[in-house]
Design a protein around this nucleic acid. Structure first.
Lengths: 143, 143
DNA sequence: TTTAATTCCGACTAAATCACTTGACATTCC
DNA sequence: GGAATGTCAAGTGATTTAGTCGGAATTAAA
């Protein structure tokens, strides 16, 4: 039940982008250096982020990445979901018509637990906006 | 962010125990057979469950395991925490005085995300009692 | 026009974790 | 005595994690 470096790095990286001017972009090298991350690894994370339409890239010298939408419209749920693959704590509840692989499904009476957890996680991360995190990062002392 | 088989199997197994009479015990073999689990693997899960005081064992023929406390006093959080090691989605927030390993901590502005998530997960799982799950499992149609 | 900075792409890899399996031993009921 | 159980320690194959590496394409600046 841990968030991996994919989600953690990705979230931090996008907070960084949220702190740029909307028309400016920041290179992966700079983000990676600031946060002590591997640039090559971070690069991999930006493939799905771009594909999901959360960021856009600018190639060539002085290029980099920037947010594709206002930071107010991007939530932690959006980012984590893209990078971790899903927000669901168990495969059997991601979509309504998933079938348990084993014949053991009829003896599994704990699905409601994962459903409640999934709803909770979605709700919590869905109400955290990137703009809030960006503001916090600029003014860490404010509650 | 997935719950592993440890947590899933363990929770299902304890629901089974919760459906026994308080003085009766059930063998791992029976639980494993009912749910299509590996008996030997399940055995490993019961080591920490016993150590945590959630179950007690009865050795010898006709032995097995039973709950150590009334099912009303055991929550999903208790079980998952023991089997998954922790309910925290990130290592940096488990205890108040954990220190980020890297010097990158001062550039990490997303800790509040993991804290909120941790609180949410703890709250959700902490309010699910084993007795509720046991009742549900006996009467799956009731809401 | 060259050069340096960047994204893009695909492959590789060491280490850790997951989900078991195996085997030997201890205890208790029948 | 023997079968049914829990206890313990170790091994294992597959998958995932967190990277690394090398090179090609694109673009701004010198």
């Amino acid at each position: 039940m841990k968030i991996s470096t994919r989600g953690r790095y990705g979230l931090r990286a996008l907070v960084e982008l949220a702190n740029c001017n909307a028309d400016q972009c920041m290179s992966l090298r700079e983000i990676a250096n600031r946060h002590g991350m591997s640039e090559n690894y971070l690069e991999q994370l930006f493939v799905p982020l771009k594909k999901a339409g959360l960021v856009v890239s600018v190639r060539g010298a002085q290029g980099g990445y920037k947010l594709n939408r206002p930071a107010e419209t991007i939530t932690a749920a959006d980012i984590i979901q893209v990078l971790e693959g899903s927000l669901s704590p168990a495969d059997c509840i991601e979509d309504a018509n998933y079938e348990c692989p084993a014949a053991t499904c009829d003896t599994c009476h704990v699905k409601t637990v994962w459903q409640k957890l999934y709803l909770g996680i979605t709700e919590i991360l869905g109400t955290i906006r990137l703009s809030d995190l960006a503001a916090e990062s600029l003014n860490p002392n404010a509650s």
